[in-house]
Simulated scan of single mutants.
Amino acid sequence: MKAWIRWIQDKPLELIDKTFCDSCNISEVVRCLHVGLLCVQRVPENRPSMSSVVLMLSSDVALPPPKQPGFYTERSVNESPSKTLLCSENTFSTTWIEPR
């Protein structure tokens, strides 16, 4: 996830489209990114409620540091794609209910 990588590298501005930089408030955009990362934390109890999200976005309340997102998987650039399973196999079973 590019957002998480840029965040931990302290480079969130690299996520902003350059065509919008002149027309947006950079600190508000970075705050939105911060809140977004809080909303995708691995442990659901660590994620803010929607009322908290509204408060975070509409005020200057201090935000806690985000933790690693639940869906973040880091892979070394040198690793071979064949050695790494990037997705899970989608298997399922179907039960047909038939009358007697």
Rank of each mutant, 00 (worst) to 15 (best):
V40Q: 06
E45I: 12
G70P: 14
L55N: 12
K18H: 13
P99N: 13
E89M: 05
E98I: 00
L15A: 13
T84E: 09
C87S: 14
V43P: 00
R100V: 09
S51V: 03
R47W: 06
P12E: 05
L55C: 11
I26A: 10
C21I: 15
L57E: 06
P69V: 02
V54S: 05
C24H: 09
E79H: 08
W96A: 01
S59E: 07
P64I: 06
W7M: 10
E28H: 15
E14A: 04
V29K: 01
R100H: 06
I8W: 08
P69D: 02
W7R: 11
M1E: 09
N25D: 13
M56E: 01
P99K: 10
S82N: 13
S51N: 07
I5A: 14
S80C: 04
V43T: 08
S76D: 11
F71E: 11
R75S: 07
L15M: 15
P12M: 05
R31D: 02
S52Y: 03
L85I: 14
T95M: 05
Q9V: 00
I5V: 11
N78Q: 14
C24I: 15
E89W: 02
G36Q: 09
S51D: 11
L57F: 10
C87K: 11
K2I: 07
V30E: 10
S52V: 09
E79C: 15
E98R: 00
D17R: 04
N25I: 14
R75K: 10
S93I: 08
S93K: 11
W96V: 05
V53A: 03
S82W: 04
G36K: 04
I97T: 00
S23Y: 00
R6M: 05
K67D: 10
E98G: 00
C39H: 03
V54I: 06
L13K: 15
R100F: 02
D60P: 09
D17Y: 07
W7P: 09
C24V: 15
W4N: 06
F20M: 14
P64Y: 03
K83H: 12
A3N: 00
I16Q: 06
S93E: 13
L37D: 07
L33S: 03
C21F: 10
L37F: 06
M50E: 02
P66Y: 09
L37H: 08
P66R: 02
V54H: 02
I16A: 07
N78C: 11
I8K: 14
I5S: 12
V43G: 00
L86C: 06
Y72E: 07
I97Y: 01
P12C: 01
E14F: 01
I8V: 13
T19E: 13
V61N: 03
S59T: 15
S82E: 15
M1C: 08
S27C: 10
K83V: 06
L55G: 04
P99W: 13
V77Q: 14
C24M: 12
C87Q: 05
P48A: 04
Q68K: 14
D22M: 03
V43H: 07
R47G: 04
